[in-house]
Each structure stands twice: as C-alpha cells, then as structure tokens.
C-alpha cells in the first residue's frame, strides 16, 4: 500500500488556498466580533448567518437531487459549478465566512451564558407546559452540542469532497457522481452522514424560528407560522440530506 493520507486529486496548491481562506476568515471574524457592541448585535449576526446558511442548504439539496436524475445530470451540474473557478472560490470564501462567524459567535455566547448563571441550580425544571418531554430532546437546550456535532461533520464532509483527502477513495479516476457513490458506500461514512443530517435537522428545529425572533420579525400573529415553518424546514433538511447515504447504492 502506497497511499499517503493526502494523496488525492485536489492539488497541494489548492489546499493552501483553502488554508489561506480559513485563516483570513478567522481574522475577519475576530475583528467583526470585536466590533459587535451588544448582545443583540451578536444575535443579529448569529441569525443572519444562520438564515444565509439555510439558503445555502436549499441550493445544496437541489444539487444533491441532481443525483436522482442519473450520473450525467449530476456530473454536468458539478462541472457547471467549476466553470468559473475564480467565482467559485469567492463563493466558497463567503460560505466559509458564514460558517466561521456562526460557529465563533455560538462559542462566544455559550461562554457568556454559562458565566451569566454563576453557580448552577441544584435542581432545575422547565416551566413551559407545552414541553411534554421536558427539556430532554428540545433542540433549544442542545444548540451548542448539535452545533459542535454538525461542525465535526462539516470537517469530515469537506475532507471527503472538497479537500479530497480520503486515502480509501481513489479520487483521480472518478467522475463527481462516482466519487459521491464511492464515499457514501463506506459503511461508517454512511452512518456519519445520516447522523450529521439528523443533527442538522435537530439544530434547525430551533434555529430557524429563533432567527426570526432575534431579528424582531416575529409577533403574536406570525409566530405560529414561523415556528411551524421552521420545524417543517428542519424536517425537510434532515430527511432530504439523510436519504442520500441510504439510497446511494441504488442510484
């Protein structure tokens, strides 16, 4: 066996570009967060980046759906994304910015929130009467946890598809369609992708509706629709993305 961990088709130069993008975004976001004066400003950015990422998810899901129409359609779609490499890199930079800002603020606010309580309660129970299962599975109590799981999944996902760093996948001789099928054929990867999709849906089960509240768009009349719309979107994302690892062998 003569495969190094980094032996793949994405060139080393391109990897340096991605490393540079990440570094630049970390600097950019640290400056931005430093300039956000208030807790509300942080929540606005949290909401806007979250909603923008939801928009990206929709586009991503439409891209996935191309797989249903066969290898040719999917490959043509993948090629069309790479038609203008410079524009793609700009898009990727913007996307990375959304992720870095969202995750950074998530960590910062989680730290603030923990500190704000001080000593923990000895006993703590919810008072909302519509919480039938208590807080056990309510997504709003687990946003940091679900977010971290999604973050870990994102690293795996980018490593698999963008960095193309998996030693067990021979990238160089595969079309995009074959690449996706080969990655999703690995049993543990299949499970990881389903788990990632489920956590993403769980995260959005609170995140979408919460964004509208943080941006001040909600009111008594609209809140019901916003809440159910958010939950419906979360299910769409969880099922939509979660189905591909399960059916990839039959495509």
């Amino acid at each position: 066996m003569n495969v190094s961990l980094l032996a793949a088709s994405t060139s080393p130069a391109e990897r340096w570009v991605y490393a540079g993008m990440l570094a630049a975004n970390l600097v950019l976001v640290s400056v931005l967060v430093g300039r956000l004066g208030s807790s509300l400003a942080k929540k606005y950015v949290m909401s806007l980046t979250g909603l923008a990422l939801c928009g990206f998810l929709v586009i991503h899901l439409i891209g996935n759906a191309m797989m249903l129409f066969g290898a040719e359609t999917y490959n043509a779609y993948a090629d069309s994304l790479h038609k203008d490499e410079a524009a793609l890199k700009v898009g990727e930079f913007a996307l990375l910015f959304l992720f870095v800002a969202h995750i950074w603020l998530g960590l910062v606010t989680a730290g603030n929130n923990r500190a704000a309580r001080g000593r923990r309660y000895d006993e703590e129970h919810v008072k909302r009467q519509d919480r039938t299962a208590g807080e056990f599975l309510a997504p709003d109590y687990w946003m940091l946890v679900s977010g971290l799981v999604i973050g870990a999944f994102l690293i795996l996902h980018l490593w698999d598809f963008t960095i193309e760093g998996r030693p067990d996948i021979g990238y160089s001789d595969k079309t995009p369609f074959e690449k996706a099928k080969a990655i999703l054929a690995v049993p543990w990867t299949k499970i990881a992708y389903v788990v990632g999709s489920v956590f993403l849906g769980w995260h959005l089960g609170h995140g979408v509706a919460s964004s509208f509240q943080s941006l001040g768009i909600g009111n008594a009349r609209r809140n019901r629709a916003i809440r159910w719309g958010g939950v419906a979107f979360a299910w769409l994302v969880a099922l939509g993305f979660g189905i591909f690892p399960l059916i990839s062998a039959y495509l």
Binding site: N112, R117, V126, R128, H206
Partner: peptide
C-alpha cells in the same frame, strides 16, 4: 449587557 446578564436563546422559559 454591562450588568453581565446572559444572551437570549429564545427558549421562552421566561414567559412561562
């Protein structure tokens, strides 16, 4: 903010 209260996560326990 300067009194060091936490951020709002929109859990709505306050209302309850």
């Amino acid at each position: 903010d300067s009194e060091q209260f936490g951020n709002c996560t929109n859990t709505y326990e306050c209302e309850a």
